[in-house]
Design a protein around this nucleic acid. Sequence first.
DNA 1: ATGAAAGCGCTAACAG
DNA 2: CTGTTAGCGCTTTCAT
Lengths: 334, 334
Amino acid sequence: MGITTKDLAQICGVSRTTVHRALHGTGRINPDTKEMILRVAKENGYRPDLLARGLVKGQTFYIGVVVLDVKNRYFAQMLSTIGAEANKRGYFVNITLHGDDKETEENQLTRLADYHVDGIIVSSVNEGDQYKEFLESLDIPIVSVDNKIAEGIPFVGIDQKQAMMDAAGKVIDRNYEKIVFVCPPINNAGERNVYVHRERLKGFQELMARYGSIETGYLTDWNYLEHLDEMIDPVKKTAFVCTADEFALNIMKRLKKSGLRAGTHYGMIGFDNIDILDYVTPRLTTISNSVEEIAVTAVNLLFDLIEKKKEGIVPEPEEIVKILPYQFIEGETV
Amino acid sequence: MGITTKDLAQICGVSRTTVHRALHGTGRINPDTKEMILRVAKENGYRPDLLARGLVKGQTFYIGVVVLDVKNRYFAQMLSTIGAEANKRGYFVNITLHGDDKETEENQLTRLADYHVDGIIVSSVNEGDQYKEFLESLDIPIVSVDNKIAEGIPFVGIDQKQAMMDAAGKVIDRNYEKIVFVCPPINNAGERNVYVHRERLKGFQELMARYGSIETGYLTDWNYLEHLDEMIDPVKKTAFVCTADEFALNIMKRLKKSGLRAGTHYGMIGFDNIDILDYVTPRLTTISNSVEEIAVTAVNLLFDLIEKKKEGIVPEPEEIVKILPYQFIEGETV
DNA sequence: ATGAAAGCGCTAACAG
DNA sequence: CTGTTAGCGCTTTCAT
């Protein structure tokens, strides 16, 4: 490959240590030799071997990020922010995808750790104490976002349950008489981490329990689009409450074919406030969990943990959990 | 950090070489000692240090990908495909973003190379012979996609010019009397690589030159939304031809406010077929450059180059350029 | 079937 | 101000 410090040393007739000092401007060194070495280095296009450096320093200035899939708008926004934030600190980001596969996620995390990234941010499909053990065995700062993995694992997210209670509350305020909760992912509980959906479901149930007069329905089949007709009450004013904007958009698209319009013929509320909503009419009413803020907070927490680890400090339990605010986004569909 | 082969050797009372053989199932080794070593390795949670391995093997089984921004739907799809394709071959992907900044891109590329990724796929904002020299100095297989950088740099993309000629041709077939070409990025020529837009512009101009009777207009200002009224002819049937779906969607959204609908009151054609189009009505007519195919081809080409480099073979000029087919996507807007 | 020794390229501790 | 030496953890001849 390229030229090494050893080569430079030979060319310049000095020791490798001197070359090192010149390259890093550290320690005492004769300005002339320094300049000479730097010149030679430049002429020969010297570039440090980062693997070698990482090996000896045990630090790579990389943070790893593992998420579901970059096609998901939400993660896309998150990654952008994480990247920018890390760059500010002179760090680079290694993004990898697990594609909703638990084992892949594990492999990606292991691999990142074995490449000595300095820390990892993960939106996990795994959960539970066994997975917690695995994460801890990696012996590297890890921050989880959105999907909580287990108590004790650093976490950044919003209060999903409360957010859903607020969302459904708005629907109730608008005098809907039947509310249909749409949440296919809940089917996959057990198979994968559905923390956010579980929490949202809890919030919905807890709220509805207080309103006996309102009829509730549940659409938790992945073929939910096939069952829309049965759900819409012919007389009762019906609204859908979805645990993801995507479901809401799909339903709106389907019902449009039957001439039904959200906000007019039925109510609709989503969750996440993904940014393609800007292109869709009517504007979907939804909840925003301000992904940028989550991303920034996650990065900050991660660097905090990296710092602490370097200094041998064990963080307090309350320091590793950050619950952020969310926002109700008023649209035209409820 | 964790336990090393040296530790394992000591625990098992053998040499590091034997440990290595056990771990890799290579060379002659007593089945019993092998089993014993593997057991001990497992018990102690041995994991190889990938930096060290990479350092000595000069190969990391990583490929690097550098793109504008993952928020861009197009790249998101590309990254997904690249990731899947690389994983199939036992490779992992290190995704980094340049955010439209030329220098950042250069830094990302340098850093990836210095970490000895085995190859890089880049959608570049840079171009020209000087940049070509830089890329070659990295001494690592690199494949560029969509935006051509310079002759001689491996490239995967479609025939942008021809595609635009086809697109505009369709509009002409539909008897529009005025055609407005929308392409703000062309403004940034010189500042950054606008290869695809430049080619599309060429295609448009070349085609329109054949039709003197049709009036043409150009909207190349980033404030293009402010100038829509001037562009739409009160009598002549007007159509917009955009070099990106995003521009088309923005225009449609704006004109909807004036009660004008694409496909009814004016024509509209986009470019790229980004997948959020599924959620927008009327369905935008556009050109698809089948990003998945581009991604797969790019990965294949990259691995081909990696292989060739390993064997010291210099690829033929015609082997490093792949021009793929595109598709006209019939919608409702033209 | 096993081991000794050298080396990947860089950094760091210790002399001088 | 400069050099010597050792070592990060792994792989790879070359011996035995």
